[in-house]
């Protein structure tokens, strides 16, 4: 790549935490409300989010554009890296390799997940009120469930380990001890956020979220 790659790389690192890291936390909490508060809890969370002012611009500048830049530039970064865990079988080198592998998985998943959910709302095939049922229809299919399960773990690992790398790349954790402590904290974040997402995936599989669509099916059949 010609020109100066210092600033795009720095921006890539920053966007991964602010706003994308904050977004993934928000997403985890919103989904978790399906586990904690059931269908109503989830609906309340969705309504709460979508009643924010200038919601379209928030989505555009806080989610879509940052993901697009982070993802496309990230693919380029992954392409410029070798994976040498075979020769250098060290924990941090595995994290380095996994960061690139999970990044590619996450980017592909996010495009697909966006198409399957937000885009379907935009196209009028579902509504925010029906999102819970919509998710139920998706994750009750075993193949989709497995894809969601793996992709969620990949995305959360990419976030948690990326946070660790962000702290190093911006010169916040300098010495080996600081980096060791921050890696433990980040892996703790990985476990907690993963559990939030996985619990919500299981919650969406519950009958509670099936009722409306099942009722619609019954009506259609009737």
């Amino acid at each position: 790549m010609s020109g100066n790659s210092y600033y795009p790389r720095k921006l890539h690192s920053l966007l991964g935490v602010i706003p994308l890291g904050l977004f993934i936390l928000e997403h985890a909490l919103t989904n978790y409300s399906a586990f904690e508060g059931g269908k109503e809890g989830f609906l309340d969370s969705v309504h709460g989010l979508h009643s924010l002012p200038l919601i379209f611009f928030l989505e555009l500048f806080v989610i879509w554009l940052p993901i697009l830049f982070h993802g496309v530039y990230g693919l380029y970064l992954a392409f410029t890296s070798d994976l040498n865990v075979g020769r250098f079988n060290y924990g941090r080198n595995w994290a380095f390799a996994l960061q690139r592998i999970t990044g590619v998985i996450t980017f592909i998943f996010v495009i697909w997940h966006f198409w399957q959910t937000r885009m379907q709302v935009a196209l009028g095939n579902t509504t925010y009120d029906d999102l819970g049922n919509h998710m139920h229809d998706i994750v009750t299919q075993p193949v989709y469930f497995i894809i969601y399960f793996i992709a969620v773990l990949a995305a959360v690992f990419h976030f948690a380990n990326g946070l660790w790398a962000f702290l190093v790349s911006w010169g916040i954790t300098v010495g080996p001890r600081a980096q060791r402590v921050s890696s433990r904290i980040c892996m703790g974040i990985f476990v907690i956020v993963s559990v939030l997402f996985l619990l919500s995936l299981f919650a969406f599989r519950g009958d509670e979220f099936a009722s409306a669509s099942a009722a619609i099916d019954t009506l259609r059949l009737g």
Binding site: S5, K10, V168, S169, W170, G171, I172, V174, P176
Partner: peptide, 28 residues
């Protein structure tokens, strides 16, 4: 900015130089 924090360098340096500490300090 080319550093990807694999930290293989510090594990491999025959002189035991704290390379990753240097990189993080220069990042700062």
């Amino acid at each position: 900015e080319g550093c990807g924090n694999s930290q293989n360098c510090v594990r491999s340096c025959p002189k035991g130089i704290p390379l990753t500490t240097s990189i993080a300090a220069i990042n700062k």
